[in-house]
Design a protein around this nucleic acid. Structure first.
Length: 472
RNA sequence: GUGGCUAUAGUUCAACGGCUAGAACAUCGGUUUGUGGUACCGAUGAUGAGGGUUCGAUUCCCUCUAGCCACCCCA
């Protein structure tokens, strides 16, 4: 039996044994870990972006945009050569001019670069900026983990006081609660380079005590020599056991760091923002000092544990006081945080929070015949400019199709103009909910529309109260 | 990057190694050449890619690709 087959013979046997990706399938596929945002998802993006911008503006943050492509060195120097992001996740390449460049893996370095490069230390301090855009990390994709994702990011430069840290956390908290996402704020202080050094010594000493290292998992054995702070991060059961008695960094903070941290917590208490003091929270970027925090979602409806998904963090940030200086600016303190918008949208979808849609009082214009089409096209512009919520489908000529479309967009009224109406100087007004229609004088269109839109609203209110009354 | 699971129309799912790969929803068309949302009829449309075993593969095996899950890490 000859099987149905596309008779396009692939390039003959001249192919190298290693098949190249491009020849493989006839259809082009998007790159791994990259996503298209389609119509149905756009409304979530609108919602989230609007919320982010509104909040940022209220708290005095101004928008900036930095290039997606930067010199690779920017990230190597700031984020840290040894961090996972830089050492194994960067989209780094040499461009045609021979420059070593990288697709932005992280927001803060670009903001810092811009702050220095444009002499923003000459602006009134603190400088508060926000930022929204794509980031690229070459990781193995999973749900909620993409190679291109979008972050909403806030940065404050030139303010060393704890108010700055608090304000960032406050904004993050407001962002989530106003989107009806339940979150938990994890917070910790990892001190400054000085007191952290002391702590790491203590921590190493602790783990060196008899028999402790043999209990650790393989990853942690490596961490012990490479980055002892990360020992605190491990979720392995046996490592957790050892960790129980480990010294906590908060007990070793210098006076300055301790005072700063206490203030942040006091402010949070004052604002009644719930937080979870997590002495084991350590963040993976080199530049963080003092306050670090992370935001994770909470499942409220006590699902059975098997149903519970791994809780990925929705956002995180911290203070980076030494970073501007490290990057060649004058000593400037700073702090910032980022929120992963794809993950936020995932959460909103999970909870199926209803979205407000702009489909109130839609007037749909339908036409029959060339003459009426022309007239309706101009009427459409007229109504639109007058502030009516109008829709049309002038590419379709049959009334059936136009009404179908009117129904799809949830129109309240349809104005129908055909040969008959055109000759009589009238227009037909069809009420899509009641299914009634009426021919009116074209000149009385505006008062008629206004009347119907108002009457409609009152009727709806009435019916709502009636149905409540019935239930009682 | 490591390990596991999966891959069938646009979407959600069917199909003891064997007949024309079947539905629902969606889309388009018709019943109605001037009337939508409920009905009826019809059409379009799929085995991720490449190889192997077999008389015969959607089904079994291998490779690649992609997705999901856990780890690593992070937003």
């Amino acid at each position: 039996m000859p099987r149905k087959k596309a008779n396009t013979t692939k390039k003959a046997a001249t192919n190298k044994p290693k098949t190249s990706k491009s020849v493989k399938s006839k259809r082009l596929h998007r790159l791994r870990g990259m996503k298209d945002v389609l119509f149905s998802e756009s409304k979530y993006w609108d919602l989230v972006e609007r919320k982010a911008k509104d909040l940022a503006n209220v708290y005095g943050f101004q928008k900036i945009a930095t290039p997606i492509l930067e010199f690779s060195d920017l990230y190597v120097k700031s984020t840290g050569k040894e961090t996972d992001i830089v050492s194994k996740e960067m989209y780094a390449f040499v461009d045609k001019g021979g420059d070593k460049v990288t697709l932005r893996p992280e927001a803060t370095p670009g903001a810092v670069r811009a702050y220095i490069e444009h002499g923003m230390f000459n602006l009134p301090q603190p400088v508060k900026m926000f930022w929204m855009g794509p980031l690229f990390r070459h990781e193995k994709p999973q749900s909620g983990r993409l190679r291109q994702h979008t972050q909403f990011d806030l940065e404050i430069f030139g303010e060393e006081g704890p108010v700055a840290d608090t304000q960032l956390i406050l904004i993050a908290y407001n962002f989530f609660s106003e989107l009806q996402i339940n979150v938990q704020i994890q917070i910790n202080s990892i001190g400054c380079p000085e007191c952290r050094k002391d702590y790491i010594e203590k921590l190493s000493a602790f783990y060196k005590e008899r028999g402790k290292r043999s209990k650790l998992c393989n990853d942690c054995k490596k961490r012990f020599t490479k980055n002892p702070l990360r020992l605190l991060d491990c979720k392995e059961e046996s490592c957790l056991e050892v960790r129980e008695d480990a010294p906590q960094i908060v007990d070793f903070l210098c006076d300055d760091c301790r005072e700063h941290f206490i203030k942040v917590l006091e402010y949070l208490d004052e604002l009644e923002i719930p937080y979870n003091l997590n002495p084991f929270l350590v963040r993976g970027l080199d530049y963080y000092v003092k306050t670090v925090f992370e935001i994770t979602p909470i499942d409220e409806e006590g699902l059975d544990p098997s149903q519970q998904k791994r809780q990925i963090s929705l956002g995180g940030g911290g203070r980076y006081d030494g970073l501007v200086e490290l990057m060649g600016g004058r000593p400037t303190s700073g702090c910032g945080f980022g929120i992963g918008l794809e993950r936020v949208i995932m959460k909103i979808k999970e909870k199926s929070i209803p979205l407000k849609e702009d489909n109130e009082n839609i007037i749909f214009l339908a036409q029959l015949g060339e003459q009426s089409k022309r007239k309706m096209m101009t009427l459409f512009e007229e109504l639109r400019k007058a502030g009516y919520n109008v829709r049309q489908s002038f590419t379709k000529d049959s009334l059936k199709n136009q009404l179908e479309e009117a129904n799809r967009v949830n129109a309240k009224l349809v104005l129908i103009l055909g040969q008959k109406e055109l000759l009589d100087g009238t227009v037909m007004v069809r009420d899509m909910e009641l299914g009634t229609q009426e021919v009116i004088d074209f000149k009385k269109l505006y008062p008629e529309l206004n009347k119907r839109l108002e009457v409609k609203e009152m009727k709806l209110e009435n019916s709502a109260t009636e149905s409540i009354a019935e239930e009682k």
